[in-house]
Design a protein around this nucleic acid. Structure first.
Lengths: 192, 192, 192, 192
DNA sequence: CATGAATGAGTGTTCATTCAT
DNA sequence: CATGAATGAACACTCATTCAT
């Protein structure tokens, strides 16, 4: 098991780490995972060496971004599970994620990216899974999603739709109509 | 308009062209469009110069593969439109494509891939579109697909599902259950 | 000593040889010695193999062109020596060569070209030398060129002026004014 | 306008930059502009990447050499204009340049070379032009150069003679005798 | 003999990663 | 710690030359 990320002590180092992560998310969102590490450094306003001090390989940097993202998503789901309407929360979350995937390359692209390396983020992914599961179960309890549908299918549809939205540049209308079909499939009846 | 691919005349050249295409499809399927042209050459058992004689740039090679593939798909659809049951043909084709995407990275990955270059294959894509349209209209005529669904959504779902299947490595069961949900959405009623 | 160029027997081969030489002269005149042999073949309307059958290396091809050129020049000088005015023939020849160098890259460029290989054309060069010498001696006899000037200087000035004209793209006026200065130097008195 | 060459700040980088420039001048002087960048790197004792960090393209490297050279020449002329005898300064400079061209391929070869790319060095060239103009005007004022001769002809003769000296390998004696003729043409009377 | 496909060493250039300053 | 210069393997592409058809 890799060391659990020793937090840097000096304030400027922590600040740099954050700036690098933000820059990396922006750069990779814009240009995909093939953007060069140099560009991330430039956007972050630090030297290339600093990036590699914080993230010894490019893979580490990508993993860190994805982990951040997964945690943020898990948080959003938690909020929905606490306050949201059980019948719609799953669809709200699902739709939001797809809509944002179309804007940022990050989510879908990095989750299964064409990096040539496998990003190891199983931990955060599992957490996300169970967060989504909560939404799913609650939706099924009130009949908003057909009972035989499992978590795996929901996640499969989620990643598929994100990838599709991302890579094919759907416009807003197409996105909504496509989601409507998927949601109808999950509900087991025509869109309203 | 660039010259429409000067097909080689000599038998050995035609053989090599085919071997290169096959090798390229295999290599890019396995490692994505970032695999090197050298590797394609090696797999084809030819020297690097031979690859570039047949396909002057890497982009040309990728385009050739995609074009081949689109034409093959269009052919399959034609057959279904001729002989198949209107109510199921669309689903048969859709499912088949997703299943094959899971095996080969080619389809979805190359169609909108992270190549850094835009592949110009609009012609074959349009042909494919209208082939799919035929299946869709016929399915709608017999009530197998809800009438308000348009071609664009079908294609969006198709590419999304292929991408998902491809990039996330769905197993056969998951694939079928996911497709069942999508098909239910298109039919407007629960899966049978 | 290399074999004295075994003349090809078949008529079509001889024709091809001539077409290749003409094409090579044109191509190299236009684009310099770095133009590809493929381009020569294309311009000649033959396959690349045919070029290499006639001229086993690119160097051989360049040599052949230069030799041709030198022989043509030697011929022109012979004509001038036979019919021309002794006082002006040298200047006529000199000027003509520079003017043509400006139009064609051939002369000057190939004579000392940046080919990376030394073209071995000593024989034809010696012949050309003695042809020019005739013009020089006759010019000196009638006082049109200062007596202490030697053949080497004339040739040096000739190649220098050709190179200059060629590589720096002099316009017609500049060419004439520059030649006037050189000729004044050779005559030993101001230009008329 | 491209950024004006971000001069490196660190001492080792400045040292490397200088070594690369020196190596490039030597290599290109010896083998012409077609020598490979790799060879420059080897001669400079650095890795290939270092050359490209300092000069992002081969063209940039060539330009840097030429610019350096032009500035050095302009400096020499400035010194002559300040201290030298007006009647001889132009000839001293002209002769010096030709003599050095014979030793180094650099000057003439790179100024109008067969590089395949146009080197953009108009700025430094213009500066050099006006420096030479100073020498010319002063020489004409004291009757050492005929008044109708323009700057363009002087420069034309200069580049031509450099090219000639360079590409044909004149020996010292030939060089001097050839220059004597050119100078006689510029003075309008026989060499002394 | 002509053809033109195949070869493969070589070129300019990029970029993740290391390490001296 | 940060910096940014150095490294060098890798890549797309070219072209003189060879050789099967």
């Amino acid at each position: 098991m890799p060391e659990p990320a020793p937090l840097p002590l000096r304030a400027d180092a922590r600040r740099n780490r954050a700036r690098i992560l933000a820059a990396a998310e922006a750069v990779f969102a814009e240009k995909g995972a093939r953007a060069s590490t140099e560009e991330v450094a430039a956007r972050a306003g630090v030297a290339i060496g600093t990036v590699f001090r914080h993230f010894p390989t490019k893979k580490d940097l990508l993993q860190a971004i994805v982990k951040d993202l997964l945690e943020r998503l898990t948080g959003e789901i938690g909020a929905l599970a606490a306050d949201g309407d059980p019948a719609t929360s799953l669809f709200v979350f699902f739709g939001g994620m797809v809509r944002q995937a179309a804007a940022k390359k990050t989510v879908a692209d990095l989750l299964a990216a064409d990096t040539g390396v496998e990003l190891e983020v199983t931990g955060p992914v599992l957490t996300l899974r169970s967060a989504v599961e909560t939404l799913l179960l609650r939706a099924q309890e009130c009949g908003a999603v057909r009972p035989e549908i499992r978590l795996d299918e929901v996640l499969a549809l989620l990643t598929a739709t994100c990838q599709g939205a991302l890579r094919s540049g759907w416009d807003a209308g197409l996105q909504e109509r496509t989601l409507a079909i998927v949601f109808a499939g999950m509900r087991g009846r025509p869109p309203d």
